[in-house]
Each structure stands twice: as C-alpha cells, then as structure tokens.
C-alpha cells in the first residue's frame, strides 16, 4: 500500500490524538498508545467488555457503542467505560420461583422504571431494553428472556437509566429463570449431553484443542449455522 493513510483528529478521554481514518475506537486507542488492560475482550462485538460513550462533532447526542465495532470520525470525543458499577445480588436459582416476586426480592429497583426508553436508545445491540424491563415488571419472564436474548451485558443501558436500574442483570436472571423453570425441555439436548458425558466426542474435542490457530479459525468461519 503506497497511499498514505489519512489521519483524523479525535479526543480520547479528553486528549487530542491523530489516528488513522477508518479505525475502530479500539484501534484508535491502541494506535494512540493506550494499553488496554480492561474494556477489551473478544474484539469481535460479542463479549460486551468494550462499552464506550462518545459524541460526534456537531451532534448534541451522547451515544454509546462498542469500541471494537464503532468507527471513529473527525472530531469525535470518546470515553471508554472499562466497567459499569452494577447491582448484583447473589442467589441460588434452586431457591427461586419464576415470578415477579423474585424480582421484588432481588432487584426491587426494577420497579422504579419511568418508561423513558433511554436504555433502548443506548443499546448497541438494538434491543428493546425498556420492553424487557416492562415485561419483568408484569411478570412475563418468557417475553423478557426472548427480548433480551442478544444482550452482551455491556452495561451501557445501566449508565443511562434515570431510575438506576441494572437492566442486564435483571435480564440475566429472567433468562435463567426462564431456562430453568419455564422453557420447554428439549429431549435432543438431554440426549446430546448424555453422549458428551459418555465420551462420544472426546476424540473430536481433543483434535480441536490441539489444532493450530489459523486452521481452527478457518473451520470456525466455515461452519454452518442452522437457524430453525
């Protein structure tokens, strides 16, 4: 590549840097010399570790996104949020019932929702966050589990909530309760678990574990996903 990389100016945690155009926020941070010890994980938009807030030049909106997925723009002001302080009670699923009372017990703050929808606006996964919170409030855990399915627990919703609700921990509990108590049991899953336990796939798993990285990545991207 002979052509010179075009550079743009961005503010990283308040300081001005020049970074290559087209970089993601994460690339920009590293280019600028920040060593990321926190706020980074998969680099693929799956793990939710890299929550970041930013304002684009000339826009009043405070936006949220994943640093590994969001591309920088000229004049962007960026602050990474390496961790969101969260309310996270300890519970044993076996002691709980799949109903609204469990949330009154463990996450009473969920009932403070004012339906402002700020959470939905903040979600990088385009989840209707307010709708799953509302589903929880009316005890519809199946719906809450369904709506929140793609949540990667980045925490951006919780940062914007005027009611100080930690949406994703509520959603996680809803999905757990749904999975344990409400979801239809799958005989196929039971069967497969049995097979794994009996050692049917031990050989294949061993092979995968020993495979060189590029070969593994080749078969990973070649895999078929069946959506039923």
């Amino acid at each position: 590549m002979a052509e010179k990389q075009k550079m743009i100016k961005v503010y990283l945690t308040g300081e001005l840097f020049e970074v290559p155009e087209g970089s993601t926020i994460m690339m920009a941070l590293e280019y600028a010399g920040f060593q990321l010890k926190q706020g980074v994980g998969c680099r693929e938009g799956y793990c939710g570790a890299c929550a970041t807030v930013y304002r684009e030049k000339g826009d009043y909106k405070l936006k949220g996104g994943l640093a590994c997925q969001t591309v920088v723009s000229e004049g962007m002001a960026i602050t990474q949020i390496p961790s969101v302080p969260a309310e996270k009670p300890i519970y044993d699923l076996n002691d709980l019932t799949p109903d609204v009372g469990t949330f009154t017990k463990l996450f009473p703050s969920v009932f403070r929702c004012v339906s402002c929808n700020s959470c939905t606006k903040a979600c990088p996964q385009d989840i209707e966050v307010m709708d799953y919170i509302q589903a929880i409030i009316r005890g519809d855990l199946a719906k809450a589990a369904d709506i929140s399915f793609d949540c990667i627990r980045c925490g951006l919703c919780a940062m914007r909530c005027p009611a100080e609700i930690v949406q994703y921990n509520n959603a996680t509990l809803a999905r757990r309760l749904y999975g344990k108590y409400l979801a239809k049991k799958s005989p196929e899953l039971e069967k497969r678990l049995e097979e794994i336990k009996s050692g049917k796939y031990d050989k294949e798993i061993k092979e995968l574990k020993e495979m060189p990285h590029d070969e593994l990545s080749k078969i990973y991207y070649k895999r078929e996903i069946k959506i039923s």
């Binding site: 109903d99 009372g101 009154t104 009473p108 009932f111 403070r112 409030i137």
Partner: peptide, 26 residues
C-alpha cells in the same frame, strides 16, 4: 430502603403497591 422488604412480603406484595411506594419514597 427498598432492600428492606422481607422475602415473605416481596413474594406477596402486588406490583401496584411496590411501584407506588417507590415512586413516592425514592
């Protein structure tokens, strides 16, 4: 203190009471 609701009450109280109380007291 919204955490002070006992477990027994939490499982019994209707949503309408909890939402109303939190709106007025928090």
């Amino acid at each position: 203190d919204i955490k002070e609701i006992s477990d027994e009450e939490a499982l019994k109280l209707p949503t309408i009471a909890v939402v109303g109380s939190f709106r007025k007291f928090t």
